[in-house]
Computed example of a mutant assay.
Amino acid sequence: MSIKFIENSLFKSKNYSDRGLALGEYESCNFNECSFVSANLSSFTFSECYFENCDFSMALLKNTTFRDVRFKNCKLLGLRFDECNPFLLSFSFEESILDFSSFYGLKLKKTQFSSCKLEQVDFTETDLRNSIFDKCELSGAVFENTILENSDLRTAQNFTIDPELNRIRNAKFSATNIAGLLDRYNIIIE
């Protein structure tokens, strides 16, 4: 199967759930209102692409490459980002839903999550140094052996992070969400 190289293209209101997107390398492309529900995106490359109002729920990402990719107002339910190609992996998420997704063991330094819903997301052994969780919902998110040094969680809510199991040196928290660091102690904060 030949791999296409596509650059500077706009894909609008397309459904790639039934008929797949052509296997290829996509550079500086914009995807708007596209559906990739349960699509097989394995071995695709997306560089400097922008996805807005797209649905990737349950898509397959085995060896998928994301370099400087932005997701805005996207649905990314149950995705295994941990199966992506880790080389130069970088993306940002804005106003997106990533519930039940996994970032297990990835190096995601300086990743930005802005106004995202991240319920039940697995961040186990993830390197999130210098990352930002701005106005994010983190109910049930798993942080275990996670590196959160210098990360900003001041406006994040409903997280549970055990300081004894995670590296949080110089991470920023607010007085209103500090309880998420003390859950293991079963204390009452009023």
Rank of each mutant, 00 (worst) to 15 (best):
R67A: 02
L41T: 02
K109P: 00
K107D: 07
A179P: 00
S151E: 12
T155L: 07
N53F: 09
S35V: 01
L79R: 03
F133D: 03
Y26A: 07
D18M: 13
C116Y: 00
L60G: 08
C74K: 03
S174Y: 09
N158V: 12
L79E: 05
L153D: 02
S9G: 07
N150I: 01
N32D: 14
L181F: 10
N145F: 12
L76W: 02
L138T: 09
P163D: 11
D134T: 04
L182Y: 08
A39T: 10
A179F: 09
L10Q: 15
G78R: 04
K14V: 11
E48Y: 08
L61R: 05
E164I: 14
Y185R: 14
L106N: 00
S38L: 08
F51C: 06
D82V: 07
N166P: 14
S38Q: 10
Y50K: 14
V142S: 08
C84H: 08
R184L: 06
S101G: 05
S13N: 15
L108P: 01
R154P: 07
V121Y: 02
Q112D: 10
I161N: 07
L182N: 10
C116V: 02
C54Y: 12
N166M: 15
N53A: 11
S42K: 03
Q120P: 00
N73V: 06
F91R: 00
C136W: 05
